[in-house]
Amino acid sequence: MKREKISVTTPDGYTVKVPAQLLATAVIAAIFGQTSSILPTAPAALPANTDSVPEVGEYWPGQGGHNAGFVPARDGVPAHYLIVAAKDIGDHKWGRYGEESGGTSRTDGLANTACLLNDGNHPAASACAEYQADGHGDFYLPAAAELYQCWLYTQHLFAKDCWYWSSTQRSANLAFGLVFGVGFQLGHGKDLELRVRPVRRLFI
């Protein structure tokens, strides 16, 4: 049976159709001051004031690094800002050459890093997980797309003459790395020592 709908005009002049049963329930609840218990709660709005957000590439006080840009919600990860650590943490092997890994996401470095830490013997991922700055200890090895975002917006913070590891595996023998001099990504042997730079997320 088709539910009856009633047209309701808002104070702004918009007309919407509402199921008659829901409208009746809302009216009755409003009379008894119980509207909040039967109507869905509106989602929290994003802060309108963005004055506290530093320019892309600038250091974000209290967040452990520089603003590497906004990342929209994707693949189950809520929208956030990518924060890149202020310094490199040395050259490390990716680890476990010749073995397949669960770290295959090209966008989710946090999930990749969790897989690598669970497997063990992944020096680059471990170094990122151990890094701390401004009281934050939730850093990780960036995925290929996150590392590319760092090249797009914060390449001035990186060395131009060496390769940096991502947490994204390409094959049992290779994982993706990026050279900041040209922004080129390529698979490298997991037993090689490449430069490492941690990142973290600031959710909004």
Rank of each mutant, 00 (worst) to 15 (best):
residue 21 Q to A: 12
residue 106 R to K: 13
residue 85 A to S: 15
residue 24 A to G: 12
residue 73 A to R: 11
residue 24 A to W: 07
residue 88 D to K: 01
residue 124 A to Q: 01
residue 67 N to G: 02
residue 67 N to K: 02
residue 20 A to Y: 09
residue 27 V to E: 05
residue 123 P to A: 09
residue 51 D to C: 09
residue 39 L to G: 00
residue 86 A to E: 11
residue 134 D to P: 07
residue 111 A to Q: 14
residue 112 N to Q: 04
residue 108 D to E: 13
residue 103 G to R: 02
residue 71 V to I: 14
residue 40 P to T: 11
residue 78 P to T: 04
residue 24 A to T: 13
residue 143 A to R: 08
residue 101 S to E: 04
residue 54 P to H: 03
residue 29 A to H: 01
residue 54 P to E: 04
residue 119 D to N: 06
residue 20 A to E: 14
residue 84 V to F: 00
residue 122 H to Q: 01
residue 51 D to I: 11
residue 117 L to G: 14
residue 58 E to F: 05
residue 91 D to P: 02
residue 35 T to K: 09
residue 109 G to Q: 04
residue 35 T to D: 04
residue 132 Q to M: 13
residue 43 P to R: 13
residue 41 T to V: 12
residue 90 G to T: 10
residue 62 G to P: 03
residue 93 K to Q: 13
residue 27 V to H: 06
residue 104 T to W: 03
residue 44 A to D: 12
residue 85 A to L: 04
residue 69 G to A: 00
residue 126 S to H: 15
residue 14 Y to V: 14
residue 97 Y to N: 14
residue 64 G to H: 05
residue 85 A to R: 10
residue 41 T to K: 15
residue 74 R to F: 14
residue 134 D to L: 08
residue 72 P to A: 05
residue 36 S to A: 13
residue 26 A to R: 00
residue 73 A to D: 06
residue 35 T to I: 12
residue 14 Y to W: 09
residue 131 Y to M: 05
residue 143 A to W: 04
residue 76 G to T: 08
residue 95 G to L: 06
residue 105 S to T: 05
residue 53 V to T: 03
residue 72 P to G: 00
residue 115 C to H: 13
residue 105 S to L: 06
residue 60 W to G: 04
residue 135 G to Q: 05
residue 124 A to E: 00
residue 22 L to V: 10
residue 92 H to R: 12
residue 118 N to P: 00
residue 116 L to F: 05
residue 33 G to M: 04
residue 123 P to G: 10
residue 68 A to G: 11
residue 88 D to V: 10
residue 40 P to A: 09
residue 89 I to M: 08
residue 71 V to P: 00
residue 73 A to F: 02
residue 111 A to M: 10
residue 133 A to S: 15
residue 77 V to L: 06
residue 87 K to R: 11
residue 127 A to R: 15
residue 139 F to P: 01
residue 97 Y to P: 02
residue 107 T to K: 12
residue 82 L to A: 08
residue 67 N to D: 07
residue 127 A to V: 15
residue 54 P to I: 01
residue 42 A to C: 03
residue 76 G to R: 06
residue 94 W to I: 01
residue 102 G to P: 04
residue 11 P to W: 03
residue 22 L to R: 02
residue 138 D to L: 06
residue 131 Y to I: 04
residue 67 N to S: 00
residue 127 A to F: 04
residue 69 G to S: 01
residue 75 D to T: 04
residue 64 G to N: 07
residue 100 E to T: 10
residue 32 F to R: 13
residue 92 H to P: 02
residue 128 C to A: 00
residue 62 G to H: 01
residue 21 Q to D: 15
residue 63 Q to L: 12
residue 103 G to C: 06
